[in-house]
Design a protein around this nucleic acid. Structure first.
Lengths: 210, 210
DNA sequence: AAATATCTACCTGAAATCAGGTATTTTTTA
DNA sequence: TAAAAAATACCTGATTTCAGGTAGATATTT
């Protein structure tokens, strides 16, 4: 049996979900909350298996709420519910421990699929949300033309720098002079047109070179 | 009409795809290559709309090939083909401009869906690959509990360090002494139990604190 | 009101990075 | 095979970071 807590200030949502899962015998709604505060208390008391979370609550934003819930309970599954498709925040929502993302105009079957997937440890996203996530990866490809060409050695050193090694440490590891590493570093800084290793690594990471 | 170039050293793949799209009148196979080198030449000559790319070619690895192709032609769509599900490289493949990812044991309909989506500017991933990507976002949430507590000021400085500012630059920006910034940095290093700013930023980033 | 947390500031010496070079050897490509 | 690219190594001086402190001022919380 999977117990569901609904956190949403619109009564309609609770009713709608109730109707959708009425004749699914392994699902039950164990509560409905209207504020984040109330939700936190109910979660502690009821220990639901799954939370359907409106991410635009009156007293808190969804990301923060998700984070708080996750901090309180590492097991519970969290599915975000939104009316408008605010795709921009999905990655952050996932990063804070969210497990699913649904639009409120979902079909019944979609809700059941989502609950099923999420309870099985998978992530479930609405189609548009999923597409958005993938595009985030892909978008940097547009900038690929302006990413400088790196030699094999430079890539290697970039990687080691990213792992936190210092110049001398890398030199020791690769059996070359520290001077050599510094030369490579200098070339990397120049290629990326930055002046610090920090910035170098930030940009490389953003462009998924490491 | 969409012209497709197949890049794969196994003849079976070409045959299989041919069969699958035989009676789709808006698709045609304009060539089959067995090596990355040959592919690069063919692409320049034929200008296909879409490339089905085996990512384990004899003479090059798939990521590099994808990158090269994308550098040569910004329009062409690239779908990776693999026999084993090497999910680990998907994000990198996307970052290098890939548009889709399919297993060679795909169904006919899946291939057509993928081609359709990709030609419409969308990303198409096999189900398992897609799940893998989403888990990458979500996995870090598990580590959230062991992330140290940061004060507001520390978060602010962490952010500025991430943006590539040096200690003195941050000091100037925040109208405080450089010493103060160094103290904060020192506290941050201690809280994360690392010894370099590089490592500090790497870990913070991994845990989505910045 | 007292205790705690946070932000601030300072000091020293060692280590690492950055900016500006030059220059030789090896590998790859045209 | 000749030219270009990549990897190696060195030098100097200025700047920044790191590790080890101490300590006062200002919130914040109990």
């Amino acid at each position: 049996m999977t117990s569901i807590l609904i956190v949403d200030d619109h009564p309609l949502v609770g009713d709608g979900v109730s109707t959708m899962i009425r004749d699914v015998e392994w699902l039950e709604i164990c509560g409905v909350c209207k504020t984040a505060k109330q939700a936190m208390e109910t979660i502690q008391a009821m220990r639901p298996d799954l939370i359907l979370l409106d991410i635009s609550l009156p007293d808190s934003d969804g990301l923060q709420t998700c984070e708080q819930i996750r901090k309180q309970d590492r097991q519970v599954k969290i599915i975000a519910l939104t009316s408008t498709n605010e795709a921009g925040i999905i990655s952050q929502f996932l990063a804070r421990g969210g497990n699913g993302y649904l639009l409120k105009n979902m079909e019944r079957q979609e809700l059941l699929d989502a609950i099923g997937d999420v309870m099985n440890g998978k992530i479930f996203l609405s189609k548009a949300a999923n597409q958005k996530i993938l595009e985030q990866y892909n978008s940097v490809a547009a900038a690929v033309n302006k990413t400088p060409m790196l030699t094999r050695r430079e890539k290697e050193i970039l990687q080691l720098l990213y792992e936190g090694l210092t110049g001398p440490q890398i030199a020791e590891k690769l059996f070359v002079s520290p001077y050599t590493i510094e030369t490579h570093r200098k070339n990397l800084l120049q290629k990326f047109n930055v002046s610090t290793t920090q910035a170098l690594l930030r940009i490389s990471k953003e462009q998924k070179l490491i």
